[in-house]
Amino acid sequence: MDFRLAIVIPAKNEANSIQAVIDGIRTLSIKPHIIVVNDASTDCTAEIVKKSGVICLNHMESLGAWQATQTGLIYAQTQGYTAVVTMDADGQHLSSEIEKLVAVVSDFEAPDVVIGACQGRASFAKKVVWNIFRKISGIKIGDITSGFRLYNRSALALLISQRASLLEYQDVGVLLLLKASGLKVIEVQVSMDKRYDGNSRIFSSWFKILYYLVSTLLISFSKIFHKK
């Protein structure tokens, strides 16, 4: 089967950065197809994406970053793409690093998921929280919140299922689902633009931080012994 790569970018009010992200991907030699999922933006994100000529999927209501990513994954799966890279629309993930993720899946014992990891971007407090989540959930991934990931067809089939629709965030919940299904997940060290914080919406207020911590702890505990 030919290798067909799609880049899925969930975007909500990213008019300032989305064009630069698209232009960056277009400079790559592998020429992937770009799918932007506009999560009910109230700015001109959708217009910019349409003008740039890439595929634009519009949510009529905001569903959140993970559900927007899932829309892109469903589209990619139905269009027969063999692999999908997900990345943020704010410019934190560098398009020049996509080839590092792709290079891994050309190996003989290719993994199902490749995570572009950059633990250096996390603050001390975040590292402590990540460690707690890792201990409780049993996930062996260093950068659990990175949205810069490559999924193959097996991972796609799992992540477009209804089970995955109930997840609120793409980090621990998705990783636990992948782990429970026995898929192979590896990490590749990548550079990220540290001017941006991919979780800024999650950590935009103390209440949201608390909600995120409690809900992630709950999902980590509830899935400890959960198998397929």
């Binding site: 519009n58 949510h59 009529m60 569903l63 559900q67 829309t71 469903i74 589209y75 209804q162 629709s165």
Partner: peptide, 12 residues
């Protein structure tokens, strides 16, 4: 959620 996702894909 699934309906919003499907509408987005079908519209495109």
């Amino acid at each position: 959620t699934r309906l919003i996702q499907k509408v987005a894909i079908l519209e495109s």
